[in-house]
């Protein structure tokens, strides 16, 4: 059983939704990332999504664009990010780590070299936002051989026939993009989300994670009632901007947000909480 499957199985047992914080590797400086990952786990993260900095993050809003720019000041590249994963794995062998980014750095490193290095580092999944299943057949095969789950997105605009196609290619969990827009956008409609997730469950037995637009503990709690995982990116990454040059300060602030979301999400799933929104 993969680390991702194991983690979702445990959470299901406990009737909890996974909390998945996203941070951009190397932001605000390369030395900050591994301690930050440990601090997020300590604060209640179940899985970590580690962003690979890219010069042209087309699917991201201004918060994560700036995070990429801060990380790229130090030239943080994909090999550096995989080294961070390996370092994290030395003292945490159970928390799954998924890389999230764009295809070109992987393409440049080479798919074989990436799969081999990532497996050795203890990486669990790869989500490349600009790689739809149609273009991914070769990559998916290589990743699977290396025990790395290809994570795919489903969007509000994804048609019924495509949902099947995406669900067949996906492993680990399915990432549902909760709104039309870039990361860090506003206003998530939780009741529409709930209906949409019910529809998706007819197509896949994989856990359903929801991301884009989850800004605070209240929204995280609402989403936790209907989804298997809550992904939080910009709401954490924006704190790095306030703590530029201060990795410890960023880790403390990020951990505080994660802790608050964790307890709100757990309360929302507790027996006394209302069953629906």
């Amino acid at each position: 059983m993969s680390r991702i499957e194991q983690r979702f199985a445990e959470l299901r047992e406990q009737n909890r939704a996974a909390l998945i914080p996203y941070v951009t590797a190397g932001d605000p400086e390369p030395g900050a990332t591994v301690p930050l990952m440990h601090a997020l786990v300590e604060a209640g993260a179940d899985l970590i999504e580690l962003g690979v900095p890219f010069s042209d993050p087309m699917a991201d809003g201004p918060v994560i664009q700036k995070a990429c720019e801060r990380a790229l000041r130090f030239g943080t590249g994909l090999r550096d990010v995989l080294a961070m994963v390996a370092e994290f794995r030395k003292s945490d062998t159970t928390t799954p780590v998924v890389l999230m980014g764009y295809l070109n750095p992987v393409e440049r490193m080479g798919y074989d070299a990436f799969a081999e290095t990532a497996q050795a580092a203890g990486l669990d999944g790869l989500l490349t936002v600009d790689l739809p299943p149609e273009e991914s057949e070769d990559v998916v095969g290589l990743l699977e051989q290396s025990g790395i789950d290809p994570i795919f997105l489903i969007a509000p605009t994804t048609s019924e026939t495509r949902i099947d196609h995406v669900a067949r290619a996906a492993r680990g969990f399915v990432y549902y993009v909760s709104l039309k827009g870039v990361t860090g956008s506003q206003s998530l409609d939780v009741s529409a989300l709930s209906a949409r997730l019910d529809g998706l469950r007819r197509h896949t037995g994989l856990p359903l994670g929801v991301g884009f637009g989850i800004r605070d503990a209240e929204t995280a709690a609402q989403v936790a009632r209907v989804a298997d995982a809550v992904v939080v990116g910009s709401a954490i990454v924006r704190l790095a901007e306030e703590h530029d040059g201060d990795g410890d300060g960023f880790a403390r602030a990020a951990a505080a947000v994660v802790r608050e979301m964790r307890s709100a999400m757990d309360a929302a799933r507790s027996p006394g909480a209302p069953a629906t929104v």
């Binding site: 087309m58 699917a59 295809l103 936002v129 600009d130 790689l131 739809p132 149609e134 273009e135 795919f152 997105l153 489903i154 969007a155 509000p156 605009t157 994804t158 048609s159 495509r162 995406v166 993009v177 039309k180 827009g181």
Partner: peptide, 21 residues
């Protein structure tokens, strides 16, 4: 699917796939 040999294709985020179809 838009390929010129190994080039071209459709490498975009999922949200745009429907609009491109």
């Amino acid at each position: 699917r838009g390929h010129f040999g190994p080039y071209g294709g459709r490498f975009v985020s999922e949200t745009l796939m429907g609009a491109l179809d």
